[in-house]
Simulated scan of single mutants.
Amino acid sequence: MRNIASTLFALGLLLPGAAWSQTTSSVLPVLTGAYAPAKGGCDAAAAAFIYVEDNAIGANKTAGKVLSVKRDGGSYVLEILWIEAGSDESDGDRDTVRIEVKDDRSFYFSNTASKKTLMQWCS
């Protein structure tokens, strides 16, 4: 009985660590999840959010299909096809996104339509 209780206690200590672990995107060396501008914080308008996934990047209701990634020092230049929800790839807009990685939870984001903005991890 004591061995069972000890085993359950040990497993209980391991689970919170597993819950806090987060995977790193294979597209960028940052954690997957939602990012918001550092100035506005995570309570900023939903349109300001950028979502970094395992192999993709998105913004609000727009999926970003990564067509190519080029590394330039500590920066990454991504060729993206933005596809709005409910649309197909033929309606997508091509864009060049530059991401300058600060650390595994933040990066500077800029593209053809926006200035360089520091994004912080929210989820």
Rank of each mutant, 00 (worst) to 15 (best):
W121K: 13
L67D: 07
D95K: 14
T112F: 07
A36Y: 12
A113V: 15
G58W: 00
L81T: 02
S106Y: 07
A44C: 05
A63Y: 04
R94S: 06
T7G: 03
T23W: 07
W82Y: 05
A113H: 13
R2M: 10
K61W: 10
L13R: 03
A113S: 14
A46Y: 01
L81V: 00
N60S: 14
A63M: 04
Q22W: 09
N60T: 00
G86V: 05
D104V: 14
I80E: 07
G92Y: 08
D93W: 07
G41M: 13
V66L: 09
A113M: 15
F49Y: 09
I4K: 06
D54Y: 08
A47K: 06
L28T: 02
A56Y: 05
L28Q: 00
V27W: 09
L78F: 04
S75C: 11
S106M: 10
T96W: 04
I57R: 06
D88S: 15
S110D: 08
W82E: 02
S68C: 02
L15Y: 13
Q22M: 12
N111L: 14
A10C: 13
A59G: 07
K116Q: 11
L81D: 01
R98P: 00
W20P: 02
G12D: 05
S87I: 02
A44N: 02
D104Y: 13
A113D: 14
L81W: 08
L8Q: 09
M119W: 07
T96I: 14
A18E: 02
E89P: 01
G73P: 07
V52F: 03
N55T: 15
P29N: 01
K102S: 13
G17V: 12
T117E: 11
T117A: 11
I50Q: 12
N55E: 15
E84V: 09
E79F: 06
C42A: 09
V27Q: 04
A113K: 15
A5I: 14
G86Y: 04
D103L: 09
L31V: 09
R71C: 04
K116H: 01
A44D: 05
I57C: 03
A19K: 05
S106R: 09
W82M: 03
L67P: 04
T32G: 06
D54P: 00
G17E: 00
F109D: 03
